[in-house]
């Protein structure tokens, strides 16, 4: 990608205009209060976080710390109580195909075949391009399963199919809520590799929610550690490990250092969460 500045508005004959990076997320003073029957629960409290375009950020934190709430606000499923989420400078006001979501337990439509699932996004937007679903499925190692229903696939294959469905829509941002937490160790490793492959090739922003410290460090450019409820940013860890990172990277000293740092923060917060709960009882 060239960095030459454009002086004319019209694209010149020599070169195409430099495409601007898209997919920057700006979380500003985000507060989300749930209010079921008057019982206020502050899930996220005045959180600030900037995620650069094409960056891979892992969101790490003890369970119940509001990770998913943050994601749901970015996805546009939830309206912030205070503050706002901006994507490329525009306020998020609802779901958008530019912000794709992968759910914890995949949400493939059980009444559609794998191919129909993958073609759903394009069908809703610019139209289905012949053969595209098939090539994405091939890439995900799902060739031969086009006409199968999701229930006929293993957990790992379902998660790959959901990733394929997302990619078919060509989103700027991929929001992933503990996408691999239900998979066995080996399948998980394969999926992680696949995800990084896709991310490095396609220049998308990834927000990856996980409670697995090693997974966060292995995948992300930056690991954002959240506090126990109410959720805030506790620590941001820059992961300065070279890419591509092979699985052996976990044995290096630098990885251990990063992991220890993340773990100590997590422990502290988990302890606080526990005391909080005991205090409530």
């Amino acid at each position: 990608m060239s960095n030459q500045t454009q002086t004319t508005r019209e694209p010149t004959m020599e070169g195409e205009p430099t495409p601007e990076k898209t997919g920057a997320i700006d979380i500003e003073n985000l507060t989300k209060v749930y209010d079921p029957e008057g019982e206020r629960v502050v899930a996220v409290d005045d959180m600030d976080l900037q995620i650069g375009a094409e960056e891979f950020v892992a969101l790490l934190g003890p369970s119940g710390c509001g990770k998913s709430t943050v994601m749901n606000c970015i996805a546009g499923y939830l309206e912030p109580t205070e503050g706002e989420v901006l994507v490329d400078g525009n306020r998020v006001s609802g779901p958008d195909p530019k912000r794709g979501v992968v759910f914890q337990d995949n949400r493939l439509f059980p009444w559609k075949t794998i191919q129909e699932n993958v073609e759903f996004g394009p069908q809703m937007n610019d139209g289905v391009e012949e053969g595209r679903a098939r090539s994405i499925l091939d890439e995900m190692g799902l060739d031969g399963f086009e006409d199968a229903y999701p229930s006929g696939l293993s957990g790992g294959m379902q998660q790959r199919a959901e990733l394929a469905r997302l990619l078919a829509n060509d989103p700027d941002i991929m929001l992933m809520d503990e996408p691999f937490s239900a998979l066995d160790a080996l399948t998980k490793e394969i999926m992680q590799k696949k995800l990084i492959e896709v991310w490095e090739r396609d220049n998308r922003t990834v927000l990856f929610i996980t409670h697995d410290v090693e997974e966060a460090i292995l995948l992300a450019d930056r690991v954002v550690v959240m506090t126990a409820r109410p959720g805030q940013v506790k620590d941001v860890i820059d992961v300065d490990l070279d890419r591509p990172r092979d699985p052996e990277v976990v044995t290096t000293d630098r990885f251990t250092e990063l992991r220890e740092r993340a773990l100590s923060v997590i422990r502290e917060e988990a302890q606080r969460a526990l005391e909080q709960e005991e205090g409530e009882v």
């Binding site: 499923y77 779901p95 958008d96 912000r99 794709g100 979501v101 759910f103 996004g121 809703m124 829509n169």
Partner: peptide, 28 residues
């Protein structure tokens, strides 16, 4: 399940399309 509707919306489905492709088949 709310996440099915959410998935459809994030893939670009409007409310009528969500009705047709998610609510109806899911209720079948």
């Amino acid at each position: 399940e709310v996440e099915f509707s959410r998935a459809a919306q994030s893939l670009g489905a409007g409310s009528f399309q969500t009705f047709r492709h998610v609510i109806y088949p899911s209720a079948l």
